[in-house]
Design a protein around this nucleic acid. Sequence first.
DNA 1: TCTGTTTTTTACCATTTGGTAAAGGCACGA
DNA 2: TCGTGCCTTTACCAAATGGTAAAAAACAGA
Lengths: 210, 210
Amino acid sequence: MTGEPAKKPSRIQIRNRRRILDAALEVFSQHGYRGATLDQIAEAAGMSKPNLIYYFDGKAAMHVAVLNTLMEEWLSPLAAIDEAGEPLEEILTYVRRKMEMSRKFPRESRLFANEIIQGAPRMGPNLESGLKPLFDEKCVLIQSWVDDARLAKVDPQQLIFSIWAITQHYADFEAQVRVLIEDETAGWKAADAHVETLFRKLLVPEITSD
Amino acid sequence: MTGEPAKKPSRIQIRNRRRILDAALEVFSQHGYRGATLDQIAEAAGMSKPNLIYYFDGKAAMHVAVLNTLMEEWLSPLAAIDEAGEPLEEILTYVRRKMEMSRKFPRESRLFANEIIQGAPRMGPNLESGLKPLFDEKCVLIQSWVDDARLAKVDPQQLIFSIWAITQHYADFEAQVRVLIEDETAGWKAADAHVETLFRKLLVPEITSD
DNA sequence: TCTGTTTTTTACCATTTGGTAAAGGCACGA
DNA sequence: TCGTGCCTTTACCAAATGGTAAAAAACAGA
């Protein structure tokens, strides 16, 4: 029923596909889909343009491949929020992991940012099917924590948006941050401390009287 | 010393320049600099492509013109933070005005976001000369408020980043927000309340004992 | 080593795109 | 009414860009 035999990919295929995806990530994240050219990607991947087409069925397919490849990893910190854990600590851990990802994978962050800002023209369905269910699930979980007074009263949806906005800001708007903050290392340290404080103050549950 | 005589622009010039800038804003904000085409802008402006070039010296010049035209207005809420005002109320007013701008001028927000994400290749100097002085000035002000215990201890730079990140998120990532939030009107209301709470909790000064 | 298959490259090509040349249209004062 | 100078458009162009054809090169199994 699956149509094609789907032969096992050779070692060369695996290596080259990886190289192309990495090059594509580099170029797409810096210039956006439209601004990226196959020549740029080819050069970054160290191979000729037609060879890209040999491995991926055109520019659009390459873009989708990059997005899909990274999507799961990108959402893994959210997925890792544990129902059984201590609510405040779970959320703060999530925040810390997001900050870490902004630092380690700014290209991935900008790739998604570019796509979303431009209206997610090539990722729309993926948002519905991949992101939305996970988002909804975690919102329900956080709401239950709020209802049990284990977190301060907060709108789970808005909370997650805030976390995304702040943590990804450091990667997405890095060019601006760099202009405004002289010492980069100190800046990151201050950012970590600030974000920790901010969400702690927002989320620490009130002392109830009953 | 100013070189050209700089004749007064005719009514037609004023009208058409405005129309072009608006069309350019529309197209640039949706597709980014590279993704936008002169044909798209021409169509949006309701005139022929060479006519654009008659009014603006090429695509890059148009982009810079749009950015510069909007820069001042975009920063006006930050500039409006008043040294003489009540600290917490000043900051919250700033936050509210930023939220309002996200709602009313999402195109402007996305225009800047696109530019910054891609490394501000055409706006770099403008950030240094236009944004940085204002940013530094307001950081000093906020720091003085903190030192006087009129605000909770907070890193002014990080505070401003947080405000930008959260408020602009609703405009820049609207495509994502729309997928995840069903009721748009309710979403905006919740956003307003959430943002208000978040920054109030962060900034309300501790009761000091001495 | 020989052979069939996979991988890669060298020309190409059609379209798109930023920009130009030059002529036509139009408003407005003399 | 007639120029005169501002405005606008119709062709065009050269470069860039996504993609193809087909041959060369590298590779793997017998």
